[in-house]
Amino acid sequence: MKPFQYTRLSTEDLSLGTTLRDSTILAGGTNLVDLMKYGVEEPDSLADIGKLPYAQIEESDKGLLLGALVTNADTAYHAAVKSTYPVLNKAILAAASSQLRNRATNGGNLLQRTRCYYFYDTTMPCNKREPGTGCAAIKGFNRIHAILGTSASCIATHPSDMCVALAALEAKVHVLRKGETIVIPFDQLHRLPGDQPEKDHNLEPGDLITHIQLPAEGFSEHFEYLKIRDRESYAFALVSVAACLKVSQGKIADIRVALGGVAHKPWKLKEVEKDFFGKEASTENFQSLAEQLIQGAQGFGTNDFKISLVKGAIVRALNNALNPS
């Protein structure tokens, strides 16, 4: 691990306008410290935000405000999350291990980096880690890689489970930028790789995620988070589906489907969802939605199976959401 400066920030530091620009932000450290040990991240300076006042969950009429420093575990088990946003509870608990969830924060979860084998191995070419070196995954081991929104320079996926549920819920992200709070819709936080795969998200240097705003509607009646992985715990999703439904007299009143493990960001298409408003909540319609949602999906060899798998998973998740066990 490369030697680095370490600063623990206080609220005064922020109000004094101490810039975060030149530091790498450290929260729970469950991903960053790992990456530093591997030499993937070699920050000169770490700014530990652990003492900043973003460690509460606040309830309001507009929904729930999740502090960026609340741990994943505390979020999942929060009474309002369990009762109003059970899809979020289920997604968080499907992730990692209890040890990691006890340490990992909400803000950090949003900004965790891909688990691409080649990204993690500093001896390998990787455009995300070292722009311009090429992508070893496209013709290598890509069983865990993306099938949607890929580019010639990167086929990595975003590994979060929590983010898939947040995408389905259409959460908003509060960001402190130059002393002002700006609000970013969840689908605009993460990016597709394009020709700048080194950028995972649309935040600017110095930005600080402070909260995640959940909307009032939590889909507590009809929801599912279905995670398909290589073992029953402690494995990233090959494919995951966050499905939320509102049903009125057998018809779809609202439908949200977000996919994990298939793209550089949680995959969700509002225009496809809207097409199904008012239609019957049936397996046939779910199949049709699945087809439209993954239109243009492309495999790279060992991940070809994801195309049919994700269709099956979407239909299963929606049917489970319709009839929660």
Binding site: T123, G140, F141, R231, E232, S233, Y234, A235
Partner: peptide, 23 residues
Amino acid sequence: VDTRYGRVMNANFAEYHIAVNAD
């Protein structure tokens, strides 16, 4: 083993999957 490089690409407990309790 990525045969292009002769390198083990999942040399860690996250990606080399041993069975866990839940299995």
